Amino acid sequence: MSTDSAFEKQLAGYRLATAEIFYHLPDHPDLLQTYIWQDYDIAPQYPVLKKFLDFWSHELEGPLHSVRLASQKLITASELRSVGAFALN
């Protein structure tokens, strides 16, 4: 039986991070567009988001303007407890 990778990440200290990315449209640089990005990441460094923003800066045409970030830890140690065991046939 495999464990869900999102659950494993949460147990390892990852939190759900949501970034609202504002960027300039390549054909109309005076206009801003938004992009919503969401993934599991580690606060306060946010290496997954930094990797994505680095990719954006080097590979995509819309120059970044700003980023708003929100994150929430979904599982804490006090919320995780054993509820018993069961067997499957």
Rank of each mutant, 00 (worst) to 15 (best):
P63S: 03
L25S: 07
A85M: 09
H28G: 00
A85P: 00
A85I: 05
P63D: 01
S66W: 02
E59T: 08
L49Y: 02
F55N: 11
A85T: 14
D27N: 12
A43Q: 08
L49R: 01
Y46A: 08
S66G: 03
S71T: 10
S57M: 07
L64P: 03
D39F: 04
L31E: 14
Q38D: 04
D27H: 13
I42T: 14
H58A: 10
S78T: 11
L49N: 02
K51W: 06
Y46S: 04
V48I: 13
H65S: 13
V48L: 04
A43V: 06
D39C: 05
Y23E: 04
R68T: 09
A85D: 11
S71L: 00
A85C: 07
I36L: 12
F52W: 08
F55Y: 15
E61N: 11
H58N: 13
T76L: 07
L80F: 14
Q72K: 14
P26R: 14
S82F: 11
I36E: 09
L53F: 06
Q45Y: 07
E79V: 00
A85Q: 14
I42W: 04
R81I: 01
H24E: 09
H58I: 06
D54H: 13
H65W: 07
D41T: 09
V83N: 15
Y46G: 04
Q38V: 04
W37V: 05
Y46T: 06
P29F: 07
H28L: 07
Q38C: 09
Q45F: 05
E59N: 11
Q72S: 08
D39K: 04
T76R: 12
S57P: 00
V83Y: 11
H58G: 05
L69Q: 05
K51P: 00
L25T: 09
F55I: 08
A85K: 15
A77V: 10
Y35F: 12
P47T: 12
S71I: 01
I42R: 10
T76K: 10
R81V: 08
L64A: 05
L69D: 03
V48H: 12
G84D: 08
Q33H: 13
F52H: 13
Y35D: 02
H24W: 03
H58C: 06
S71R: 01
H65V: 09
G84M: 08
A43T: 06
S78G: 11
K51D: 15
D27G: 04
I36D: 04
L69E: 03
V67L: 06
L31S: 07
Y40K: 01
L49C: 02
G84L: 10
S57F: 00
A43M: 03
Y23R: 06
L53I: 05
K73E: 15
Q72F: 01
S57D: 11
I75S: 04
L64D: 03
S82G: 09
S78H: 10
D27A: 12
D39L: 02
H65G: 00
W37H: 11
H24I: 02
W37I: 06
L69P: 02
A77C: 03
